[in-house]
Each structure stands twice: as structure tokens, then as C-alpha cells.
Amino acid sequence: MHVFKTIRGQIITLSALALLAGTAMAADAPAAKTAAKAGEASSPTTVVARVNGVDIIKAELERAKKVILSRNQMGQATMNDEMSKKVEEAALNQIIAKELLYQDGKKLEIKDLDKRVQEKVAENKARFKSPADYEKALKEMDMTEKEVETFTKEDMVIGNLIETKIVATTKVTDDEAKKFYNDNKDKFRQAESARASHILVGADQKASPEEKKKAKEKAEALLKQLKGGADFAELAKKESSCPSSAQGGDLGFFGKGQMVPEFEKAAFALKPGEVSDVVETQFGYHIIKLAEKKDAETVPFEEAKERIVQFLTQQKVQKGISDRVEELRKKGKVEILAK
């Protein structure tokens, strides 16, 4: 069961780091608070930490900071000193955690590891449109192809450790799932919803008055055809400018707040089988046919159970990783060094 997955740029998966990004350890670890102030000049090869004798250099720290900033859509220029320090602390703790997990994971055998690493690297490289795009991505992350291979190997080793020692032993009982459901009934409240189809004659807000007039006249002509007995789905396939035309205009189920107000008001005012008049929205002119409505209800436990189990499993796995890192850190020797 894969309950963790994230991508570092488009180059490499770093699952463990993704789960550890939100742990308290990143904010509270005493060692992290002894790190040198952000912004001080140092060489990319300067050792910033040492984990059981393995050096972590400044370049790795800067790369991890880039990942955090990218993942949170933050720019270096928008950060103050306090924010920058927090990002640096989180990045350093993530690297330390990754190294601890990697060292632990190396104790487990992985068949054909080197071959699998090469296959994964090739797979990730193939996601790029061209070799030039791949090289550009490497440059942006300050990485070499050799480093990509190293990170891929580390990730496979860490992933195997998590799957084997944590995920495989993580269970969520029916009682736990039921308790979560009973304690969070409000989260399983499903609002009133409707299933409808529509025919759209497009005319956006930039359209001229004349273009809007023509679009409305076309929509009214289509409505007239429908009133004369034309098949709604067939007409939608031929005339609607919405991508839903391929499904005969079917939009599936939607709740209140998911559609623009004018469309929503018209759709929910219909009875199943009824067709609306021409409805104007920012997208143009719609003709709506209501298929069915569902009243507001609480989703039954059996329907919600699978999602609950998945959610609780993720929580347990994340805690399992955090606990294992804490244990490894206590048993090992982690040094935070000045930059």
C-alpha cells in the first residue's frame, strides 16, 4: 500500500521527506535551533551537520530549502529573517531525518537495487519534453546526473524501509474507523446535490454586444428545437461549446457553491426531467436539463469507511516515521555545525 508520494521537481521522488515536512521535529528539535544564522556566506562544500559520521554539506541544505519553498509556493525575496530561519531549520532536520532513515534502510536487502535505480532515473528523465528541459531542471536544482542517481537510490532504500517496517505493520481496526466516524459526523455531511446536463453557446465577458446577441439568439433557437422534441444529448453533442458536449452535456453531480450562481440557481430550481429557459452566465448562454437531485444527508459509515481507513493509515504511518527518526536520532550521533 503506497500511502506516501511526492516529487522533487520532476526529477526524483522523496517520499520520506514529504511526510516529515510537517512533523513537530522540524520546529522543535533543539539541535536545529543551534544552527548558524541564515544568510551567512559559506562554501557549497561547507559541512553544516554530521550524522553518524556522514557529512551534510551546505549545497544539500540549499537544495532542500528550494524544495520547501517550491512546495509551499514561497519566494526567497518574500521572506523575512524569521521565516528564512524556520525554512532553514526545517530543511536541515529533513536532511538529517533522511540520512538517519537511509542508514537504517541500508540494513535491509533490496534485490537488483542498482538496476532498479537506473530504470527509475530513466523513467523520470523521460517525463521531460527534451534533454534540454531535463538539463535545465538539473541546473535549477543545482544537481548533477550522478546526484540524481544517488538521491534515487536513497529514496528507494528509505521507501523500502517504510513499506517493510512501518506500512506493513500499520493496521486500522474497524473500531478505530467507527470511532473516527462517530467523532466527526459533521465531516461526512453531504449537502444537497444535483445532476444536470447543459448546452452552452459560448460568449465570454470580452465578447462584443453583437456577438452576445448572436449567441443568445442561437441558444433561443436551440431551446425551441428542444421544445419541439429534439433529443437533448444529441443536440448538446452537436451544438454545445462546453467540453461536456462529448458526454451529451452531462456534468455529473455537483453541490451548491460548485457552479457560478446563475447556473446553480436555475439548475436547483428545476424538477427532474425539466429543461430551463436560456440562462446567461459569464461563460455565455446555457440551456440546462436536470436529471436528478439528492437531498442533504450524512454519508453512511460503510460508504465512508475506505476513505477513513486510508486517512488513519496515513496518520499512523507518518507518526511511525517520526517516531523511528526520533529513536534513530537518540541512538545515533547528530552534530549541528556552523556554516
Rank of each mutant, 00 (worst) to 15 (best):
I7A: 10
S130K: 13
Q258N: 08
G249M: 05
C242Y: 05
R127V: 11
L20T: 02
N72W: 04
K187S: 12
T13L: 08
A64V: 05
P209Y: 04
T164L: 11
V278P: 00
S130I: 12
R63G: 05
I162L: 12
E154F: 12
P272M: 10
R307E: 06
G252Y: 03
E280R: 00
A233P: 04
V121T: 10
F4L: 11
V317T: 06
Q315A: 02
A207W: 03
K120A: 11
D174E: 15
A233T: 08
A36N: 10
S43D: 04
A207M: 04
L113G: 11
I321S: 03
D155Q: 12
L19I: 14
E210D: 12
L92M: 14
D323V: 09
I95G: 02
A16D: 13
N80Q: 11
V201H: 00
G159D: 06
T164D: 12
V275H: 15
K265N: 11
V279A: 05
K115T: 04
G252W: 01
S42P: 00
K107L: 15
P30W: 13
Q10K: 14
L69H: 02
D186Y: 10
I321G: 02
K66E: 03
T46D: 02
V317G: 07
M141N: 02
S276Q: 08
T23F: 04
K339G: 08
I56T: 03
K206N: 10
S245W: 01
R50F: 02
G273E: 13
Q118H: 03
A41P: 00
A26H: 08
T144N: 13
L17T: 04
R63A: 09
N93S: 09
E40C: 05
K66W: 01
E123N: 14
L113E: 08
L270K: 04
P261Q: 09
E327N: 06
M74A: 09
G75Y: 03
I11T: 03
T6Q: 05
A215P: 00
E302D: 15
T34C: 14
K293P: 01
G22V: 09
E176H: 05
V87L: 06
K120N: 09
K224D: 15
K331H: 08
K206W: 03
K129P: 03
D81C: 07
K294T: 06
L161F: 14
S15K: 09
S197E: 08
E217N: 04
L17N: 11
K256Q: 02
M74Y: 02
D28P: 06
A132I: 15
E119F: 02
K66Q: 07
T34K: 14
A18V: 06
L161T: 08
K265V: 07
I96S: 05
D81F: 13
R63N: 11
A38M: 10
E306Q: 07
P261S: 12
K213W: 01
L113Y: 10
A177T: 03
A35K: 08
L200I: 09
R127W: 14
A291E: 10
G229Q: 15
F254T: 00
K224N: 14
K125P: 02
K339P: 07
L251Q: 10
